[in-house]
Design a protein around this nucleic acid. Structure first.
Length: 269
DNA sequence: GTACGGCCCTGTTAGC
DNA sequence: TGCTAACAGGGCCGTA
């Protein structure tokens, strides 16, 4: 599932191939999640940005094309659109650019596309309320700690909310909590532990980007290649396997509707 | 404003 | 072998 490292990997690949390209035609699946794609017709893409897990493509007419990949969304290029659409039953949107066609493929349809006035994210609540980017200099340990202290919910739930820091999903939340030796169910963190968790969130995301993202099943980069970070995971997907710090079998439980994996010994409550 | 549950989706896997 | 149910989970929405 694309989290910040996967979206950033796609953004970096996308940028040189879409910036300056005009959108001549576009089409979409009937779902309202994807129909806004066609509203981009006539505009030129002027950049390729990212905010948390959202891809932001600024357009020449003071609007932004916002793409969320959901769980199974993928972007790719083709020389031309398959005329009968039979080549890809999960094609949800496409944009004819000057040099090629940008395709949005999404099996489970958890992705979504929006076009908004530049910087006006009121119609996208998670984006509008997103916390700072992980490497924002304004995101200090104190600010991160204060953000977590505002809620009584489990720290895992808070990370997934995108409010303390943007871009963390289920995989990198479990990895950061494991590295910081913090139990995912605690709701109170001291300043020092919050600072450690913030450091490990940054480390987990940096490692993910360096390795081209985590491919467990669906995620692919723009070229269709797999990420490599799945080989380096310490917690996510390792239920019952020995903790690589203390050999205790990792345990798991559903927290906030997400399977959460942790070490019962070195991430004690 | 916060907390929580349910829903959207469909391929894969486990169980019978 | 074939069918059914459970599972995966990011974001949104309604309700309390």
């Amino acid at each position: 599932m694309p989290e910040l490292p996967e979206v950033e990997t796609v953004r970096r690949e996308l940028e040189p191939q879409v910036v300056g390209q005009a959108i001549g035609e576009a089409g979409s699946h009937w779902s309202a999640k994807f129909t806004p794609a066609v509203d981009a017709i006539g505009a030129t893409i002027t950049g390729a940005g990212r905010r948390g897990k959202f891809l932001l493509l600024p357009l020449s007419d003071d609007r932004e094309l916002v793409i969320h990949l959901g769980m199974t969304g993928k972007l790719s290029f083709a020389d031309r659109l398959d005329p009968d659409g039979a080549g890809d039953p999960y094609l949800r949107a496409w944009w004819q650019l000057d040099d090629h066609v940008l395709l949005f493929h999404d099996v489970r349809r958890f992705g979504r596309i929006r076009i908004v006035p530049t910087g006006d994210y009121r119609t996208i609540p998670t984006l509008a309320n997103a916390g700072p980017e992980p490497w924002d200099p304004a995101l200090t340990a104190a600010r991160f700690h204060a953000s977590i202290a505002r809620s009584k919910r489990a720290v895992k739930t808070q990370l997934l909310s995108q409010r303390p820091v943007a871009g963390v999903g289920n995989i990198y939340a479990d990895e950061a909590l494991w590295a910081a030796q913090i139990n995912p169910k605690v709701s109170r963190l001291g300043l020092e532990r919050a600072g450690r968790l913030l450091d490990e969130v940054r480390n987990a995301l940096e490692q993910g980007i360096e390795n081209g993202g985590t491919t467990l099943r669906d995620y692919r980069n723009l070229e269709g290649g797999r990420g490599q970070n799945q080989h380096l995971l310490q917690a996510y997907g390792r239920t019952g396997l020995p903790c690589r710090r203390c050999d205790t079998p990792l345990t798991s439980e559903v927290i906030d509707a997400r399977t959460t994996v942790w070490c019962p010994r070195c991430q004690r409550r």
